[in-house]
């Protein structure tokens, strides 16, 4: 047992040292291998004009902030409210669409934390009259772990939680209950230029006002969602 503990401690120490070395290694945000040490520059002759400074060998130096903008689309989850809306003559509401803006700050090269503002919406059309519409705005705290698999490709896993308001408009009246919001998903990020990337992501959104108006119904903007977006790092 004592030997096992010692081995475990040694393994942790090795991983810590290796992680520190990786964290300190130069390279861009996508984990490019560090450039070899530059040859020592020859002494400049007296009177010779100063040489232009070398171009930054790191195309994306360690960023201090990342901005993500995404558009999302996904199927709705079938709730009791949808059945009632159908019995009242509304068509099925098939999809939730929306967009979000996320700001992330690096805690480590692989770990980012920040906040997301998200908008989600869905509608119920009706053949013989005005349709109904629901949209929600939420603010979530978010954390994302990134793994660079190549200089131009990263995978990310993220979770977030927060809350917001969902507003449902029906027959020109609006009800706006509060709703908790959670998100979890994965992201594939492809670098397209210095400091700029595009990404696709698949996530589960939980954004639902339970038992709104004491009706026994949940007003839901939840569901699986696919999104595409852009990310800018500075």
């Amino acid at each position: 047992m004592e030997m096992t503990a010692q081995r475990l401690a040694a393994l942790i120490a090795v991983l810590f040292v290796a992680g520190s070395a990786l964290a300190q290694a130069p390279g861009d945000e996508f984990g490019e291998t560090p450039a070899p040490a530059a040859e020592p520059t020859p002494q400049r002759a007296e009177g010779e004009p100063a040489a232009e400074p070398d171009a930054d060998p790191d195309p994306d130096p360690d960023p201090s902030v990342a901005l993500q903008l995404a558009l999302s689309l996904g199927p709705t989850t079938e709730e009791q409210l949808d059945e009632v809306m159908a019995s009242l003559g509304y068509d099925r509401s098939a999809s939730v669409f929306g967009g979000d803006l996320t700001v992330l700050l690096p805690l480590a090269r692989w770990l980012w934390v920040g906040a997301r503002a998200q908008l989600r919406a869905r509608g119920w059309t009706r053949d013989d009259g005005e349709g109904a519409f629901a949209f929600g705005l939420a603010l979530l705290a978010e954390a994302e772990a990134r793994l660079a698999v190549s200089p131009s490709l990263q995978f990310g896993l993220y979770v977030g939680g927060g809350g917001g308001l969902i507003s449902m408009r029906l027959n020109e009246a609006v009800d706006t209950p509060a709703a908790p919001a959670f998100v979890a998903g994965g992201r594939v990020v492809v670098r397209i230029a210095k400091g700029a990337s595009v990404f696709g992501r698949l996530e589960y959104d939980y954004f639902l006002a339970p038992d709104f108006n004491d009706s026994g119904f949940d007003l839901s903007l939840s569901g699986m969602a696919f999104a595409v977006g852009v990310e800018v790092r500075r």
Partner: peptide, 9 residues
């Protein structure tokens, strides 16, 4: 009366 929503009667 209104039902489950203030716009549905």
């Amino acid at each position: 009366v209104h039902t489950f929503h203030s716009g549905e009667h």
